[in-house]
Computed example of a mutant assay.
Amino acid sequence: MDKFVFGVNDKKEIWWCNNEESNDDNNNVWTRVSDEEAEYFSDIIVHKGQIYALDLNSAIWWISLSELEIFQYGPSTPMDYYEFDDCKDKRLVEFCGELCIIHRFCKTFRVRRVDVERTTGFKVYKMNMELVEWVEVKSLGDNAFVMATDSCFSVVSSDYYGCLENAIYFTEEKDVNNVNVFKLGDGSVTNLVESSENCFHMFYPPFV
């Protein structure tokens, strides 16, 4: 964002710096952005020239570039998940010009006497501006989401050979050498077989 740089560190904190300013050691000075109600965040994004952050309670915050403070933007997304064990990850993504939130769900399975955590599904939400509430997106149409390690973005599936529409591509935290795909239509999760004919062969080694 012009002269400003924002980021979320591994402690889930948002920090910013002015890349036109530095201290005597020629290093950028970083300042933390937080609020009494929101200290930790899972993602940050630039959307239509504005900066938004997603906190760990699934609420979106707007960051003012003039004041460098945060203000809550609308209500939190629903968290009443009865069929899932854990909402493992939450991301922001721009989809068809709208700001959306992706929730990733995991369960722990016992495999050969070892607990293994696996992704079981995703839910996508967008803001209904008339009702001022988050509504679930049931279909991505001819689009797909790629949930990479440090970013999340959408693509038009028909632009990429072998890319499935209405799907989310991702890797498991402890199995980053394999790309998986979640089909939003039937809720299935399958492993993506590496192939030079598939557009996603570019993600081997896995996308980062």
Rank of each mutant, 00 (worst) to 15 (best):
E69C: 12
D43T: 09
D89E: 13
Y169N: 06
N191F: 08
T31Y: 11
K90L: 11
F105C: 06
T190A: 14
K3D: 05
E172F: 10
F41G: 01
A53G: 03
M129W: 06
K3V: 05
V8G: 03
K48D: 15
I45A: 01
E130T: 08
K90N: 08
M202L: 13
N26E: 11
E69A: 12
C100N: 07
K183C: 10
A167M: 03
F41T: 01
Y160E: 02
R112I: 07
S22H: 13
S139R: 08
F207E: 02
V116I: 14
G187W: 02
E165H: 12
K11P: 00
C106N: 05
V189R: 01
N28C: 13
E194F: 15
G121S: 13
N180Q: 13
C100H: 04
D142W: 00
G185K: 13
D25P: 00
C163G: 02
N166M: 03
K126Y: 04
K11Y: 11
V93L: 01
E165R: 14
F95E: 00
N178H: 11
D86E: 15
E37C: 14
I44G: 03
E94R: 06
F105A: 04
C17P: 00
Y161F: 13
S196A: 14
S64W: 04
S188C: 11
Y73I: 07
V93H: 00
E98W: 01
K12V: 05
D175T: 09
C152L: 04
L164Q: 10
W16I: 02
D186A: 10
I60N: 01
C163N: 03
K12L: 13
T108V: 15
Q72R: 15
K3I: 07
T108L: 04
P78R: 00
G162H: 04
I44P: 00
G185F: 06
T31S: 13
L65W: 01
K88G: 06
E13R: 14
